[in-house]
């Protein structure tokens, strides 16, 4: 474990908590893409099937929290507060993300076993899972501040993981190209948002995308 990965995981945890609190407190999931949240639930389910393989208390605890929180978020959006779910703007065709990720996982992986292919699928899936949410923000042309804080924390997590991978390569000579390439793609997808967040939201303005 290193500081980059620890802060990255905590940023990830913070993002998930911000989102849950936003929906729970405002009793509304307006502006939130349910599709992205379903994709995240798929990501954690397919990645953490190795939960029985004990790595550390921290590792096991975080996996349980991420799985539970992602399903809780999907439940809040599609069941409890479904009246506030914005169908009309959450229209990204997720099949164009799921299928290619799965096919790519079958073609490019470290080991052609069920667990490893599903882990690889979760890595590819996670790198594009935020697209429906970013698409929804671009369609509505804006995002609530709390939603942009969620996106900033979520985007920062994988950006910090890139620093973790650099650190691990230089100190432990450990690297995983699949995770690294997907993590770079994932972080690049946030760049446009990061720019808007830093130039607007941090100055107290609302996140307005050029429509």
């Amino acid at each position: 474990m290193n500081i980059f990965r620890l802060v990255g995981d905590l940023s990830h945890l913070l993002a998930i908590i911000i989102l849950l609190l936003k929906i729970w407190k405002t009793r509304s999931c307006a502006g939130i893409s349910g599709k992205s949240q379903i994709l995240f639930a798929i990501v954690y389910t397919s990645r953490y099937l190795d939960l029985p393989n004990f790595v550390s208390m921290y590792n096991t605890l975080m996996k349980i929290v991420f799985i539970a929180a992602s399903y809780a978020t999907v439940y809040l959006i599609y069941m409890k507060f479904k009246a506030t779910y914005d169908h009309n703007h959450d229209t990204f065709r997720v099949e164009f993300l799921v299928l290619p990720s799965f096919v790519l996982a079958l073609l490019i992986n470290h080991d052609f076993t069920v667990l490893e292919v599903l882990w690889t699928f979760s890595i590819y899936m996670e790198s594009v899972a935020i697209l429906p949410q970013l698409f929804m923000v671009s369609k509505t042309g804006e995002a609530e501040s709390i939603t942009s804080h969620y996106l900033f924390a979520l985007g920062s997590y994988r950006a910090l993981y890139i620093l973790n991978w650099i650190y691990r390569y230089t100190t432990e000579d450990h690297y995983d190209l699949i995770a690294i390439v997907a993590g770079i793609v994932q972080t690049v997808l946030y760049c446009d948002f990061f720019y808007l967040y830093i130039t607007k939201v941090l100055k107290g303005k609302k996140l307005q995308l050029p429509a």
Binding site: R5, F66, E116, D176
Partner: peptide
């Protein structure tokens, strides 16, 4: 290809 090891990252 890094040899197959368990994934210790989240």
């Amino acid at each position: 290809d890094s040899e197959h090891e368990i994934h210790d990252e989240l």
